[in-house]
């Protein structure tokens, strides 16, 4: 039961990516619950409702229909402070576009920027960097 992370929230419109990334997170086996939301709006609803456990880590895709990753972050900043506290946000995207990377670095809520796919090894690095002892 004593795993490093209580809950990870995956936000991506691509169900295949969500499936694979969830697999990678489970393969690393240091997370109790993985919640996937396939749009920014759904993720915001979920966070507002506070029905689930607190999300220690959010993986956020950039290219999504209706509300993209950047727009999600704008809405996220309006959320209650208690929801945002103690949460790490990492952009997880296909885009290696330098302008997107720069945008990520400038955003106060974004801790890191990694390219898809998420693997067990990448999870290991993230956990060591942000959730080490």
């Amino acid at each position: 039961m004593n795993k490093k992370l209580k809950c990870i929230l995956l936000i991506d419109d691509n169900p295949h990516d969500n499936f694979f990334h969830e697999r990678a997170i489970k393969a690393y086996d240091e997370t109790e619950i993985v919640v996937t939301k396939d749009s920014g709006a759904e993720a915001l609803e979920y966070l507002k409702a506070k029905t689930g456990p607190h999300s220690d880590l959010i993986f956020l895709d950039i290219n999504m229909p209706a509300m993209n990753g950047w727009e999600f972050l704008q809405q996220y900043s309006q959320l209650d402070k208690t929801v945002r506290e103690q949460t790490i946000i990492i952009m997880l995207t296909t885009s290696a576009n330098p302008s997107d990377i720069e945008k990520g670095q400038k955003n106060a809520f974004v801790s890191d920027y990694i390219t898809k796919p998420l693997t067990k090894e990448k999870m290991q690095l993230i956990a060591d960097k942000y959730f080490g002892e």
Binding site: N14, H16, D17, F20, T94, S95, N97, P117
Partner: peptide
């Protein structure tokens, strides 16, 4: 060219991911 190659990469990654699975 950028968008085209970027969008081509996406389904390919899905194939690659499922191959790993």
């Amino acid at each position: 060219a950028y968008v085209a190659s970027h969008d081509l990469q996406e389904p390919l990654r899905t194939v690659s991911n499922y191959m790993k699975v």
